[in-house]
């Protein structure tokens, strides 16, 4: 019985097909699983391992390396506050402190209602709107302590549902513009590459 939903599984298979080696799709697949569950459940990691022909230990090894992949449960909304240099100067650290106090949790924690997980982030690439905040990887613009409280209230009331999807999802995992080439031509090109490689190897063998 598959843990991943049929649509997720289908997208996973599409992603795997993009790479010469299945294991290259590991990180995108982890994001996909997070789209379903919000975090990487052990069942999901085992299924990813089976899809890619690697071991669950390897999936966990990779997943535990990256901050954007969660091996522990997270809330419906993952609020990331940047404290890198631009944001620090723009009040990021103070905003984070305020967020901790307002939500009643420490960095890395999840509110009791399971709605919000707070994390301190490295540069989120939105320095012109410091201090930068994202919710489920969607920018919500520069925040002040006051506006942050409003944001939290909106999230809890479900008022931002149109722009912020539930659970942490990277847009690019779903973006389908990445591969413009016809799969057949990709396959042809790969075959040609393999042939050339074999020829080189053969030439090398003969030379040695």
């Amino acid at each position: 019985m598959s843990h991943l939903r049929p649509d997720i599984l289908e997208r996973a298979r599409e992603l795997i097909a993009l790479y010469p080696r299945p294991r290259s799709a590991l990180i995108p697949l982890c994001h996909l699983a997070q789209e379903q569950d919000g975090w990487l459940r052990p069942e999901a990691m085992e299924e990813i391992a089976a899809l890619l022909g690697i071991t669950p230990a390897e999936v966990r090894g990779t997943a535990s390396f990256y901050d954007m992949l969660h091996t522990e449960p997270v809330g419906t909304y993952l609020v990331s506050i940047c404290t890198n240099i631009a944001c620090l100067l723009g009040g990021g650290a103070e905003l984070l402190e305020h967020a901790e106090a307002h939500l009643g949790i420490r960095v890395g924690g999840t509110t009791a209602d399971g709605m919000i997980t707070l994390e301190e982030a490295e540069c989120l690439a939105d320095c012109d709107r410091a201090p930068c905040v994202t919710v489920n990887h969607r920018y919500v613009g520069a925040q002040t302590p006051g506006s942050f409280d409003g944001l939290v209230a909106d999230l809890r009331a479900g008022r931002r549902g149109d722009e912020i999807p539930p659970h942490g999802t990277l847009v690019r995992v779903r973006r389908s513009t990445g591969l413009q080439a016809d799969p057949a031509s990709v396959a042809d090109e790969r075959a040609a590459m393999a042939e050339a490689q074999a020829a080189r190897a053969a030439a090398k063998e003969e030379g040695s």
Binding site: M45, T55, A57, V59, F65, Y66
Partner: peptide, 26 residues
């Protein structure tokens, strides 16, 4: 991974928190 062909252990974590780990219950 390389010799036995069964990567039942791998590094988990990053930086100073890296440790050799199995998958839970495996």
């Amino acid at each position: 991974a390389e010799v036995a062909g069964e990567a039942l252990i791998d590094f988990a974590g990053r930086g100073e928190r890296v440790e050799v780990a199995t998958f839970p219950d495996r």
